[in-house]
Design a protein around this nucleic acid. Structure first.
Lengths: 156, 156
DNA sequence: GTTCTCACGTCAATATAGTTGACGTTAGGG
DNA sequence: CCCTAACGTCAACTATATTGACGTGAGAAC
């Protein structure tokens, strides 16, 4: 008789007793985040990267020639925290950094072709999960989801 | 002329160029998670606790006399990872652990009154954010949000 | 009753993602 | 020309997780 300690990765969308009417929603937010990022993280792990690397790739893909300072602003973490994953990406040639001759102060970041591929594949995993969910509820449901998330996201 | 490096905590719901139609949704998930947990985390910090402590308190509140093993199953992390925050909560007397005379093998966890207060206040911060968002879109929107998140959460 | 086994729980070492502090470099304004 | 402040890097530390090793106790085999 084997105990089921092995498949702990699935992490059990818990059937906890609900003390409040919004407890279910609260738990959904938690497991939703995990559900969206899980397959992307698994893919990233196969290429030796993780979430912070993906976040950098994601932003640079959408704003080529961004400076490190601007990148930091968007990511909301310290420049020192960005440094290590950023250097790994440069070293792996997923990113390039050049200083333009006249603006010598900041480095400008850009994805290489390999970097674009990784960014796209990782983000595709996340978008696939979202797409399936939106398909399940139709455009009005998707719009409602976006509206709710917009309000929640503005709580900063 | 002061540069705005100080309020970096607000982390800028970025106005990035959208490469795909679902990019906006993807970013909303990220900032939504942060938006929901931010005020709760700030409260927890004032009492010297953080997210893993809250997760433990949350589960124990909803399943009194839970064993450490069962707690681990629900949290989806290793028993070693649970150990340190759990011991802090015991030491701070926010949790009690007793071994029942006949089931001497596992410890049974329970919240103290102080533990209940902390759990409730932290979770209230999160529920407040959700409630405001749901109020903004009405019951059908809330239901749609739950449906979408349910599908996403099942991606494990 | 003794002993074997295994779940439960703890301790130690390591990895990863973040922080703050200190420092060199470069651009631009007195 | 030099002072200042932004940009970027290096080093040290903290927090949250991981895996591995180990002690303890309950229940079964004998």
């Amino acid at each position: 008789m084997q105990k089921n300690t092995s498949h702990a990765a699935g992490l059990h969308r818990a059937s906890l007793r609900k003390l409040h009417d919004l407890d279910a929603a609260l738990e959904l937010m938690y497991y939703g985040w995990r559900g969206m990022t899980l397959s992307a993280d698994q893919y990233l792990a196969t290429v030796g990267l993780s979430r912070p690397h993906h976040r950098i790739l994601y932003v640079v893909a959408r704003q080529p020639d961004i400076s490190i300072g601007a990148l930091i602003e968007i990511l909301g973490i310290s420049k020192q925290a960005v440094n290590r994953p950023l250097n790994l990406l440069l070293q792996r040639k997923l990113l390039t950094s050049k200083r333009s001759p006249e603006q010598h102060r900041s480095k400008l970041l850009r994805l290489t072709e390999a970097g674009k591929r990784v960014e796209q594949r990782a983000s595709d995993h996340e978008r696939k999960v979202l797409r399936e969910a939106f398909d399940r509820v139709g455009p009005p449901g998707a719009a409602a989801w976006m509206a709710v998330m917009g309000v929640i996201a503005d709580n900063n």
